[in-house]
Amino acid sequence: MRIEFKMEGGFAHFPGLSKPVRIDADQLSREESAQLEQLVQKARFFDLPGKVNVARKGAADYYQYTITIQMGKQSHTIKLVDPVEDTNLNELLLFLKKKSKETRSGRSGQR
């Protein structure tokens, strides 16, 4: 399973924080790989619409996320904005944010 995760927007645009991050499940530890697979399943990722939610009229400074997951022959991309009300999807998002942070600070946890 391969994931591309991109975060943009927010109160300020930070070039270093808006670069897309790629996560390859094969490169994760066995525990993390299993955890990721479970999160993707629980979020029913491949059943989600391409646009999960949109910002309310007049809203500003919200984060926007683009997540692409490739699993076997399946590939799906979703876009969403904060606040994310779907708790299962939010769990997946928190995992991806954590991994992005580790990648940025060089503590990738990768083998």
């Binding site: 927010g10 109160f11 910002a55 007049g58 500003a60 400074d61 919200y62 904060d82 606040p83």
Partner: peptide
């Protein structure tokens, strides 16, 4: 105290 270690402030329209 919105979100977990949440790095943002926003206006959601209301």
């Amino acid at each position: 105290h919105f979100g977990n270690e949440y790095n943002n402030a926003f206006w959601n329209g209301e």
